[in-house]
Nucleic acid binder design. Sequence first.
DNA 1: AGGTGTGAAAGTATTCACAGCG
DNA 2: CGCTGTGAATACTTTCACACCT
Lengths: 232, 232
Amino acid sequence: MISRPPRPRDRGIPEATVARLPVYLRALQALQERRTLTISSEALAAAAGVNSAKLRKDLSHLGSYGTRGVGYEVEYLVYQISRELGLTQDWSVAIVGIGNLGRALANYGGFGTRGFRIAALLDADPTMVGQSVAGLKVGHIDRLEEAVRDNGVSIGVIATPAGSAQHVANRFVEVGVASILNFAPVVLNVPEGVDVRKVDLSIELQILAFHAQRRADGDGREPADRTGLELT
Amino acid sequence: MISRPPRPRDRGIPEATVARLPVYLRALQALQERRTLTISSEALAAAAGVNSAKLRKDLSHLGSYGTRGVGYEVEYLVYQISRELGLTQDWSVAIVGIGNLGRALANYGGFGTRGFRIAALLDADPTMVGQSVAGLKVGHIDRLEEAVRDNGVSIGVIATPAGSAQHVANRFVEVGVASILNFAPVVLNVPEGVDVRKVDLSIELQILAFHAQRRADGDGREPADRTGLELT
DNA sequence: AGGTGTGAAAGTATTCACAGCG
DNA sequence: CGCTGTGAATACTTTCACACCT
């Protein structure tokens, strides 16, 4: 549908940029649903909650996909960002730990708006095993290796209690799962080459508390965010 | 006159440091449970998944709480970090959206290991209202203002579908809640001075996919990415 | 000796501001 | 003319390496 990209792009995309691409992608997909064809950096930046210079710089790392005087073609950008993020292929995901959180994840429809397929749900609790969650039968954790191999799982999600997380991580790593999303409140130890991302609810709360306290302390002073300085 | 007597300590702790303090705190609390009295920067750094230079620099922003040749006193550091993060006071939290995720959050025992109190659960679904979740009765979202005021809520958690998130955020802001933790996959628009943090499951997955793809593509090159880090 | 605290250097990220293309 | 793409300036973060304290 869209002609082949000119050349393998520069692969040195800054980490900070990578972290924002999904946000841009989501904003663009929303625009696409509203049949918007093109958009300026200014408008897209506003939708994504960043400033336009940052957005343009970010996109410039993917290539020159805009048109001066006009903006970006929504559909084309969606495609380019999706490709860059690896969403043009499907990733199989296994979720371990089917408590409230695991269930929430399994049921999270918008899981990537395509690109991700939840292939297996596993739990250690025998009363959990066999139950149907989000249209999938929960398997026993003992079958993790089997589940990973049979489904070509390449991303593992850990939603177990803290005490089991490292063990599950080890097993993921052993069967070759090199991308792990960890919701358990522990620091996982993994060998070089394995990519772990952590989502930690209480850490986020604590960061909020820090800023809230500062707001209260300094009171009438720092408005939570530093004010811009003048120069020039 | 250049002297500045009033300020006891520099309050300008770098954001990157703030984001790591909760991780250190958790590691220290684990040590405390094992009756460890003192710890070196090297060992604490390993437990927290960072390098020791970074840890020392981070802690140096709080003050000079270590002893040269010895290390840090665990209990004292726990106290200092807790105080810095504002955990020596209690923060009341309201959760809006009691689906699987909201329930998971409500039941998350380790919610801050003290410091946070879940004061109200709210939902728009009438069949949900009145149910008991994690020992609390779910209230109707219409009573948000009441719930916030009666319980002195200062942190709001949004676990609703994307479509309702902005509306809920507006109402939080209007009753004076200036700290929001958003799990809905949308960019919230809030006035200056309101602090929003976002946790987005599919964004995390997409970042993992990016690195996984790079690993597959470039192959034999980039060693994936550093592990054990989170990003905000 | 042993390990913290910290300037200085190196590496990243953000913002500015404007040349130049469509 | 408007808006992208980008060098240059600025700001922030991490890492190094060692003086200095216990």
